[in-house]
C-alpha cells in the first residue's frame, strides 16, 4: 500500500489530483473559520461583480450573498455527500457482490437479477424520483445517491470474487476447514479490493456530480448551501451575472477532475501489470 501511494504521487496526474483534493478538504474544514457568517447572509449589494471589492473577491449573487462564502460552505456539502454516499453504496455493494460471487448458483442468480433491476433504471431519473418522494434533505439525497450507485460495485466485486475463489490458496483455506465467511473476509476481499478502491474514487466524483445535478434542479436540501444550488440559482440570471454560475461551476469541475485523476493514478498504482514498470 505504501508503495502504491508512492507510485500514485509519482504519477503527475495523481499528484495534481491529490493536491487539489487536499486543498478542497482544507477549504471545507477551515474555510468557515475565515468566513464565519452564514453563506445565506445578504452582505453586499446584489450582483456585485467579482474582483471589485476586496472583501468579496468572487462578487455577490442575486440577493447580495457572498459567492466566495457559498463556494467554501458548498465544498463541505459536496465532499460530505460524495464521501458518505460512496461509503454507503460500498457497504451495500461489497457484501452483495461477495456473497453472489462466492456462493454462486441460485444465490448468485437471485442477487444479480436484483442488481440488474436497479441497473436497468436510469440512475439519475431514479435519484430524482427517490429524492422527490422522500422530500429533499441531506439524508434523502445521500440515500438516493447510495441507492443508485451500489450496483456497479456489486458487479465488480462479484467478478473479482468469482475469479479469486478458484485460486489455490482459497481452496487450501476451504480444505483446512475455515468457515465461508472467514474465507471471504480474510482471503478473498483483501485481494479483491484494489479495483474497488479505484472505482470508489470515481464514485465520489460521480456522487458530487449527482448531488450538484439534484440541487441544480431544485431538489437540494433547501437549508444547505451547495455548488449545484448556486449554479441552479445563478443560471436564471446568467446573462446579467455570469460569475454566480461560473465560479461554483469551476469548483465542481475541478473537484470532479481531481477525483478522476486520483482514480486514474490509483489504477496505475494498484494494477500490478501496469505498476511493475514503475517499480
Amino acid at each position: 500500500m505504501k508503495q502504491a501511494s508512492r507510485v500514485l504521487l509519482r504519477n503527475p496526474g495523481g499528484l495534481i489530483g491529490v493536491t487539489i483534493l487536499i486543498i478542497a478538504v482544507a477549504v471545507a474544514l477551515f474555510g468557515p473559520l475565515l468566513f464565519p457568517a452564514s453563506p445565506w447572509r445578504m452582505v453586499q449589494r446584489p450582483f456585485l461583480p467579482p474582483f471589485t471589492l476586496a472583501g468579496f473577491p468572487l462578487g455577490t449573487d442575486a440577493l447580495g450573498r457572498d459567492v466566495m462564502a457559498g463556494i467554501i460552505y458548498g465544498a463541505r456539502i459536496s465532499l460530505l455527500v460524495g464521501l458518505i454516499s460512496t461509503l454507503a453504496s460500498l457497504a451495500v455493494g461489497i457484501p452483495l457482490g461477495a456473497i453472489a460471487g462466492y456462493f454462486g448458483g441460485k444465490i448468485d442468480d437471485a442477487l444479480m437479477r436484483f442488481t440488474e433491476f436497479f441497473q436497468t433504471v436510469p440512475s439519475f431519473a431514479l435519484a430524482i424520483v427517490l429524492v422527490a418522494i422522500m422530500q429533499p434533505s441531506i439524508v434523502s439525497i445521500v440515500a438516493a445517491i447510495a441507492i443508485v450507485s451500489w450496483p456497479p460495485v456489486a458487479r465488480l466485486v462479484r467478478g473479482e470474487v468469482l475469479s479469486l475463489r478458484t485460486r489455490e490458496y482459497v481452496q487450501a483455506a476451504v480444505v483446512t476447514g475455515q468457515t465461508n465467511w472467514w474465507i471471504i473476509w480474510r482471503e478473498i476481499l483483501p485481494n479483491a479490493l484494489s479495483p474497488v478502491i479505484v472505482l470508489a474514487s470515481l464514485m465520489v466524483a460521480t456522487a458530487i456530480l449527482l448531488e450538484s445535478s439534484l440541487s441544480f434542479l431544485g431538489l437540494g436540501d433547501p437549508n444547505l448551501m451547495s455548488w449545484g444550488y448556486m449554479v441552479g440559482a445563478g443560471r436564471t440570471v446568467i446573462r446579467q451575472a455570469w460569475w454566480i454560475t461560473v465560479f461554483p461551476g469551476i469548483a465542481i469541475l475541478v473537484s470532479v477532475l481531481a477525483l478522476n485523476l486520483i482514480g486514474e493514478g490509483l489504477n496505475d498504482a494498484l494494477n500490478p501489470r501496469l505498476a511493475k514498470g514503475g517499480r
Binding site: S38, W40, M42, L63, P136, G218, N223
Partner: peptide
C-alpha cells in the same frame, strides 16, 4: 424561492430557528 431564502435569513437574524421545507 429567492424571496423565501431572504425571509428565512431575516428571521434567522433575529434568532428564529427556521427550517425551509421544499415542496412541489
Amino acid at each position: 424561492q429567492r424571496w423565501a431564502e431572504m425571509v428565512r435569513q431575516n428571521l434567522q437574524d433575529v434568532g428564529i430557528n427556521v427550517e425551509m421545507i421544499a415542496t412541489d
